[in-house]
Design a binder for these strands. Structure first.
Lengths: 343, 343
DNA sequence: CTGTTAGCGCATTCAT
DNA sequence: ATGAATGCGCTAACAG
């Protein structure tokens, strides 16, 4: 049995296809007599008719579909839920405007070629971080397809549209916050690989802990992070009385540390100030009354949304969207792990 | 500037559109003189022509695109990387056959209606677990669209195709393995919410620990699981000498326990046998030499692949794929945390 | 208010 | 070996 088309419905009701089309699209300019309208609606329902969007897309030269390109999810398994939060943001924003999203996995240059061949299916493309090498960049640059890069650090002077997070903004706020609390002696605790990067960012943000003690440990994966932070805190604990505050490179680290502190009868937020990074409580939807960690929200969901917005603006012909680098300021979220601390 | 079409290329080279089409599709039956072929290829490259897949889809009545439907990723943030592993499996299999994948988020009945309206874009649909309520089920059942459910437990007698994991298979193997090692006294350790379910599954699999001690603790999220398991092991530790083995409901729990054991100078795999569940080492791509935990692999990636295979078989007209319930046996992965243990 | 018609880009059939 | 013609399902312009 063939799938019903406009013609099927039209023949059934005894009207022309355009009338059916008008009803289907709720055409405001052309009124359809309600008698016919009802008959048409009934026939549509009875035949379980749904429009063939390929035909519509072909005619209108657009697909209302966007590709989100990323590496295999495997690559993100170790690093936790951050990418997904951004994807949710993208999806949410796209949906508002009737767009849908194709998930494209790229792990080789071959995959890039495959993407190019399917490009006619997409009105635009959002690239997740670090999916393209230089060669792929060049292949894609020649095509004139609305494209936005998310969280891409390796721009190397390319003229592309991208949305990134300004981590320094939140860290600057944190510094001010700790200053106002009177915290003078600040330690840094976290993953060996990121601790240097974090310190540099602190420096640029004016949080001067460059000459202060840094405690760190190797990272396996996000899932072991809390326990790792718990276990590796000995050195820090020995010198803890020297500090007013401990900034952690990550919320998981902070949680692990806090549990360890509590196990040693030291109360975070009372005996010492502790801060994290990521606002993971919001991502994990922890009930408000259980949230206690002062942290920096790096707005990953917002980043996804902004990517989608920027892309849609470009698709709609907004010339200004073509070469826009948008930086979203991360922001401090103050909770009880610092706010009531008195040095 | 208009996008180049077959006509553009044909006019450029001075041949007919059908010739260009033939070259494009590598039509084996009709040879094209290599002179023309080269000229055509050159023009295609020069114009950066890519075929309009909407037109092709319209003509051929298929899209080579499949929808993967899930709830917002938000919902999975607490539960870790398992869904993503399945998605990777789906993507991998689809790609083999030139199919692509649209990501559809459903959180309300309205979203379901939206999906139905876009159905013509998909040759088939894969549903992630627990996305549909009864009403949505019914709306979808009337449509005749190839559909496969992944990891769906709430079938309630519906005639649908689905792929699930047989958890009992691996647990049965575990029982046999522990028996052979001579482990008689087995404890169960894990999350309060799942510990009962796990015990029941053990019972069905013949691993009789129903009358043995169960130790459990509440779960917050996957990321705190290791540390939670570490911290809540006191009760278990007190009675540890009564047991030959501890089965954990989950690898993260097992890792947390193992760390705690080591902190107490008890060596897992020597002083006591420990097992987990999930084979998370493989998901997180832990180097082989660092894997030590005996666990049960529930083959989530395979599940994704099998979903895709089943769906493609249905799309290709395989009548047998229309009402297939495929159960994949989970399997035991033996590592050093049990294999060398002597009671 | 509604019907007729053209054409979106392509693969395929038929004719040459 | 290649060109011409057809039609997939739909929307929009035009005609009535």
């Amino acid at each position: 049995m063939k799938k019903p088309s406009l013609k099927t419905i039209a023949a059934e009701v005894g009207v022309s296809v355009s009338t059916v089309s008008r009803v289907l699209n709720n055409d405001a300019t052309c009124y359809v007599s309600s008698l016919k309208r009802d008959a048409i609606m009934e026939a549509i329902k009875r035949h379980k008719y749904t429009p063939n969007l390929n035909a519509r897309n072909l005619l209108q030269g657009k697909t209302s579909n966007v590709a989100f390109v990323t590496r295999k999810f495997d690559h993100f398994q170790k690093t936790g839920p951050f990418l997904l939060t951004s994807i949710d943001g993208i999806q949410e924003e796209l949906q508002k405007f009737g767009y849908s999203c194709s998930l494209v996995t790229i792990d080789s240059l071959n995959d890039t070629r495959r993407l190019i061949n399917k490009m006619s299916l997409y009105d635009g493309i959002i690239f997740g971080r670090a999916v393209l090498d230089d060669e792929a960049f060049e292949i894609l640059e020649e095509r004139e397809k609305p494209t936005v890069f998310m969280d891409e650090s390796n721009l190397s002077g390319r003229n592309i549209s991208c949305v990134t997070i300004n981590k320094e903004a939140g860290i600057g706020e944190l510094r001010k916050h700790l200053d106002e609390l009177g915290c003078r002696r600040v330690a840094l605790y976290g993953i060996s690989k990121y601790v240097g990067l974090f310190r540099d960012t602190c420096g640029r943000a004016g949080l001067n802990i460059g000459d202060m003690d840094i405690f760190h440990f190797p990272m396996h994966n996000t899932y072991s992070l809390m326990l790792d932070a718990y276990e590796h805190a000995d050195e820090l604990l020995k010198k803890l009385s020297s500090y007013d505050a401990v900034c952690c490179t990550n919320d998981f680290v902070a949680y692990g540390l806090c549990k360890r502190l509590k196990a040693n009868r030291i109360i975070p937020g009372k005996d010492i100030a502790v801060s994290g990074f990521d606002n993971i409580d919001e991502i994990l939807d922890v009930p408000a009354e259980q949230r206690f960690l002062t942290t920096i929200d790096d707005l990953r969901k917002t980043m996804g949304q902004e990517c989608a917005k920027l892309l849609l603006r470009w698709i709609d012909g907004g010339e200004t969207a073509k070469n826009t680098q948008l930086k979203i300021d991360s922001k401090l979220v103050v909770r009880s792990s610092t706010v009531n601390f008195k040095p």
